[in-house]
Computed example of a mutant assay.
Amino acid sequence: MKLGVIGVGHLAETILRGLLRAGLRPEDICLSPRGHGPQMAKEHGFLLADDNAAVVAASDLVLLAVRPGDAEEAVNGLPWRENQVLMSACAGVPTARLAGPSAPARVVRIMPITASELGASPTIVYPMDPAISPFLDAIGTTMALDTEEQFEAATVSAAIYGWAQDLIRTSAEWGASRGLDPALARQLAAQTFVAAGRIQSEQEAPMGDILASLCTPGGITAAGLERLEQEGIHPAWKGACELVLDMLSTKK
């Protein structure tokens, strides 16, 4: 199956690197000629199309990774055909806005993150389509949603991914300020977040029970959490999630 990419920006570049890492052949992937397309084709052997119409004509599955405001214009008037799938990674752009301009192709929404490059993206998808599974599985874990409303709420996780990066950086900088080697402080903070995620992901105990098992009364974890709660961390975090969801909704 041939993959085409319209919009070769930073996100698409990480997806492409993840696909190469998983063993997909660059000659089976066709890139649009703008953005990072020419450089990626030169460096890795991807096919480079003359224009977006050529991308669609050469592909069975097309990844759309342009700015959300440009999504409809980017797919309109291209030679879409039956049994083709348009896989949109444009946040906040519902399937209804793309279905007409890309008919008769099927429209699927996905939201990968830049950890695709490492094969570690938890990629949400709606609606699930068997044709896209090999590509999404190559860049991480595929998580199918039942409704577009669920997909929109789950898209907030892409922003949370960035917030986690900021918490890791803040923790590393604090450790370095207290005398740790900066490289060690960075790895310690990063791997601590990885470990926390794995515990929650791979154990079946309720999330609250896992946390409670770490919070010995009078201990350092409990004391730190109490301080964070006093500072209003939970309302602020949930408020940020609601803000992002509202932003996604206004793009409709």
Rank of each mutant, 00 (worst) to 15 (best):
L167V: 14
A131W: 01
E229L: 15
A89G: 13
T250D: 00
L63T: 11
N83S: 13
A91Q: 08
V66R: 03
S177M: 05
G35S: 15
G4V: 09
A57F: 04
R21G: 12
A212L: 08
P26R: 06
V75Q: 09
V8D: 10
D50A: 14
L180R: 05
S157E: 07
M87K: 07
L61N: 02
R97I: 11
R67T: 13
Y126E: 00
A222W: 07
I110L: 10
A212Y: 06
S133D: 12
V244I: 13
A158G: 15
S213Y: 00
A115F: 04
I132C: 01
G9D: 04
P182F: 05
K251M: 13
D166T: 13
G35E: 04
A89Q: 00
A54N: 01
T192R: 03
P104W: 03
T170M: 07
T114W: 00
A176C: 11
L228Y: 09
D70C: 04
A164L: 15
A99R: 14
H36T: 00
A164M: 15
T170H: 10
A144C: 12
S116A: 15
E43L: 08
L180W: 14
H36M: 11
G208H: 08
A158E: 09
S32T: 08
L118W: 08
A57R: 14
S213E: 12
V244H: 02
D209A: 14
S88M: 06
R227W: 05
Q84K: 13
I15S: 01
A159L: 12
A190I: 02
L248Q: 05
Q150C: 04
P38T: 07
V107P: 04
D166I: 12
R97Q: 15
R106C: 07
E231R: 15
G77I: 06
G175H: 08
V93W: 05
I220Y: 11
A58E: 13
A172C: 11
L248H: 08
E229H: 14
H44M: 00
P79Y: 02
V156M: 13
F135L: 15
E242A: 14
A240N: 03
A195C: 06
P101S: 12
D129Y: 01
H10A: 11
Y161G: 07
F135T: 11
I168P: 01
L63E: 13
L248P: 01
E148Y: 04
N76A: 15
W163Y: 07
G239T: 07
F151R: 04
A183T: 11
L136D: 03
L48W: 00
V108D: 03
F46M: 05
L136Y: 03
E13Y: 04
T141Y: 08
K42A: 15
R67W: 01
R21Q: 13
A183K: 08
R109L: 05
A195W: 03
L86V: 05
